[in-house]
Simulated assay, not measured.
Amino acid sequence: MLVTIDQDKCCGAGSCVLAAPDVFDQRDEDGIVVLLDARPPADLHQAVKDAADVCPAAAIRLDHA
């Protein structure tokens, strides 16, 4: 799995951080998403999928390569 984010779309809701804190974080100054791991291990894939599903701005893209 390859994770990409679009920081321009991010609204800073933080849903991704709650769903997958090992993969996503937020900038302190504005809450915009920061990607910690673009290729998370298999045991985190479901959490990353959940994060993408709950993102209100659709700022997370998953490629299954």
Rank of each mutant, 00 (worst) to 15 (best):
I5E: 04
C10N: 01
I60H: 12
D25H: 07
A59F: 08
L35T: 01
A38D: 15
F24A: 06
K49T: 14
P41C: 04
D53Y: 03
V34A: 10
L44F: 13
C10I: 00
V48T: 00
P40A: 06
L35E: 05
R39M: 06
D30Q: 03
Q46H: 03
A58H: 11
D43N: 13
V54G: 00
C16H: 02
C55D: 04
A52T: 04
P41N: 12
C11L: 12
V23P: 08
A52N: 11
G14C: 10
M1N: 10
M1D: 10
C11K: 14
T4W: 03
V23Q: 05
E29R: 07
A59E: 08
A51K: 05
D50V: 06
D50M: 04
Q26N: 11
D25W: 12
H64S: 11
D37I: 09
P41L: 12
L35G: 09
P41D: 10
E29P: 02
I60M: 04
C55Y: 02
L18S: 14
F24E: 00
A13L: 04
L35P: 05
A13E: 12
D50P: 00
P56H: 13
D22I: 07
L18K: 10
G14D: 02
R39Y: 08
I5G: 13
Q46P: 00
D53M: 12
A59R: 03
A58I: 07
P56L: 06
A38L: 10
A47R: 12
G31I: 01
G14H: 11
R61T: 14
S15F: 09
D30W: 01
K49N: 05
L18Q: 08
C55L: 10
H64W: 12
D50S: 08
A47I: 02
D22C: 06
D43R: 07
D28Q: 10
V34I: 15
R27G: 04
R27H: 14
L2T: 15
D6E: 13
D8N: 08
A51W: 13
Q7A: 15
L18H: 06
D22Q: 12
R39T: 09
P56M: 12
R39P: 00
A51I: 02
Q46D: 15
D43G: 05
P21N: 11
L18M: 11
D6Y: 00
D22S: 11
Q46S: 08
P56E: 06
C16N: 01
A47S: 12
R61W: 07
D6R: 07
V23D: 04
G14R: 10
G12Q: 05
A57Y: 08
P56N: 03
D53P: 00
A42F: 06
H64M: 09
D53K: 13
G12T: 07
M1Y: 10
D43A: 13
L18V: 14
A57Q: 03
D63P: 07
V23R: 01
G14L: 05
G12C: 02
Q46Y: 06
D30A: 03
K49P: 00
D8F: 13
A13Q: 00
H45C: 01
P41F: 01
H45M: 01
R61M: 12
G14K: 03
Q7S: 15
R39D: 04
A65F: 14
A42H: 07
V23I: 14
R61Y: 13
D53G: 05
P56V: 08
A57P: 06
D37C: 14
A19L: 00
D28G: 08
T4H: 15
E29F: 13
V48S: 04
S15N: 15
